[in-house]
Design a protein around this nucleic acid. Structure first.
Length: 461
RNA sequence: GGCCCCGUCGUCUAGCGGUUAGGAUCCAUGGUUUUCAUCCAUGUUACAGGAGUUCAAUUCUCCUCGGGGUCACCA
């Protein structure tokens, strides 16, 4: 069974890049009828927070990406890690290093001065003397001194590292006994049964270290897929500094989860010329082998287009719900179908849609000067009066019925359609633009329409 | 700096030795529309450079250049 995972460290909100690797992992697990599990990497007590964990969980909930099984918290697994540290110590595959932090810094500085690679020199690797006083030892693993380490990667191919280039006896447990990242990752991935690791390629250089741990412990090595970074417009790794990287910010801006997911799945992955993917299609078609090798730049133009597409295809009843957070309540509006049908083709975001609704529903208190200048040429007042008279004498409900009234006025006064459409538009909305006039009137109803026309006549005669 | 990865329109990408180098987005123009938007049509723009291999390279190899990642008792 395929088991994938997402393993964030709770130092902040869930960001776009993390979400994409999570999505990939989720899709691949689902496609194979496997499991997608969540592990919170909260071993760094100083930088982690409970709120961050909650924020990440909340984002997943919004997106509908559900993790399988219980969530694993590394902070609760100290005994497990301690057990393996002891095992490696007993087997002579790891050892205590009594080098102080000062000595380590000193070593690094000399190495840098000599333009050598900075690395631990292994001075306690075979130490059997009396340990120095007053130093809490760290535990270091015995890494291979030479030879080749191969990382078989499903995205990048097989990558070869030379042990002497990149490895030293790295720390697996700190002075206070707390285990370090590369050690616990390997243990947890193995213990949790994760056999396909999909993660950012900033982890590529960690992989040989983790392989050292896997091998020391005799664990099976999972399949790796290192997905390229998402870059900002400057070509650098996308970071929290870049703004608009918080997944939940997209909810607030009025993006639909399916649009965000669709956008993200196409960053670094594609299936021929297809642009629109439902969740089912993503699951059906996704394969990490098809992930691109090169980084992509984060540019949200296409996200807007996708979001507009999904809004257009959202049933009105659902839109009514989605507009609630923007204080637009259409639940009992009898013309909400007509309104939303007309408006949902013109909004890129739900927030924008809310704005468009308000522009129609809320009575204008002022009139745009340019619009008045353009629309009120000729004798708009008598046109408006004529239309008002028609309206008083009838009981229109549908856009077509309002349209018929407009046509009557146009025919009787022998004027072009623009001579009634444009003044009416300004009278009703206070500005140009917006959906068809007859639709607007149908939505407003006879009474409100007459009121707005009357207001316009008083202020402009 | 060492090690590793990457390099097709502005952006997301297709391509897997022979193509007028395709699609999407963005932008521009035209059509539709009483307005705006939608929608439709059309158009501009790309194989980083140089050597090879080959009858033939965007595609394979090498070099150069460019970009990125990573080098902790952080994850």
């Amino acid at each position: 069974m395929v088991v994938t995972r997402f393993a964030p460290s709770p130092t902040g909100y869930l960001h776009i890049g993390g979400l994409r690797t999570a999505l990939f992992s989720y899709l691949w697990a689902k496609k194979n009828g496997g499991k997608f599990v969540l592990r919170i990497e909260d071993t760094d007590k100083a930088r982690n927070s409970q709120e961050a964990t909650q924020a990440i969980l909340k984002a997943f909930e919004w997106l509908g990406l559900e993790a399988d099984g219980e969530i694993t918290y590394q902070s609760q697994r100290d005994e497990i890690y301690a057990k393996y540290i002891k095992q490696l110590l007993d087997e002579g595959k790891a050892y205590k290093c009594y080098m102080s932090k000062e000595e380590l810094t000193e070593l690094r500085e000399t190495q840098m001065a000599n333009k050598e690679r900075t690395m631990y020199d292994g001075r306690y690797r075979d130490f059997d003397g009396t340990p120095p006083e007053g130093v809490e030892p760290v535990i270091r693993i015995k890494a291979p001194l030479s030879g080749e380490i191969l990382v078989k990667d499903g995205v990048k191919g097989t990558i070869s590292f030379q042990a002497e280039d990149i490895l030293d006896d790295f720390v697996i447990a700190r002075g206070d006994g707390a285990p370090t990242y590369n050690f616990v990752v390997a243990i947890d991935d193995y213990l949790m049964g994760i056999n396909e690791v999909i993660r950012g390629d900033d982890h590529l250089s960690n992989t040989p270290k983790q392989i050292v741990v896997y091998e020391a412990l005799g664990f099976d090595i999972p399949a790796f897929y290192h997905v390229p970074m998402i870059h900002n417009s400057k070509g650098k790794k996308l970071s929290k500094r870049d703004g608009a990287t918080d997944v939940m910010a997209y909810k607030e801006m009025g993006y639909k989860p399916e649009a965000l997911l669709n956008f993200l799945v196409r960053l670094g992955w594609s299936h021929g010329d297809q642009e629109i993917f439902s969740m089912d299609e993503m699951i059906e078609l996704f394969n990490p082998k098809d992930i691109n090798k090169s980084a992509s730049i984060y540019n949200t133009e296409k996200l807007d287009w996708l979001n507009a597409h999904y809004i257009k295809n959202t049933p009105n009843a659902e839109l009514v719900e989605l507009l609630m957070p923007y204080d637009v309540v259409l639940t009992s509006h009898d013309k909400k179908e007509i309104l939303l049908d007309a408006l949902k083709e013109r909004a890129k975001t739900l927030k924008e849609l809310a704005l468009l609704v308000n522009e129609i529903v809320i009575t204008p208190t002022s009139y745009d000067e340019k619009a008045v200048k353009k629309a009120f040429k000729g004798d708009p007042i008598s046109v408006l009066n004529a239309f008002g008279a028609k309206l008083t004498a009838s009981e229109p409900h549908l856009p077509t019925e309002y349209h018929a009234l407009m046509e009557e006025v146009v025919n009787e006064m022998e004027i072009g359609f623009g001579k009634i459409g444009m003044p009416l538009r300004v009278a009703l909305l206070g500005k140009m633009g917006g959906p068809n006039i007859d639709v607007i009137m149908a939505v407003l109803g006879k009474e409100e329409t007459m009121l707005r026309i009357a207001n316009a006549i008083t202020t402009h005669s």
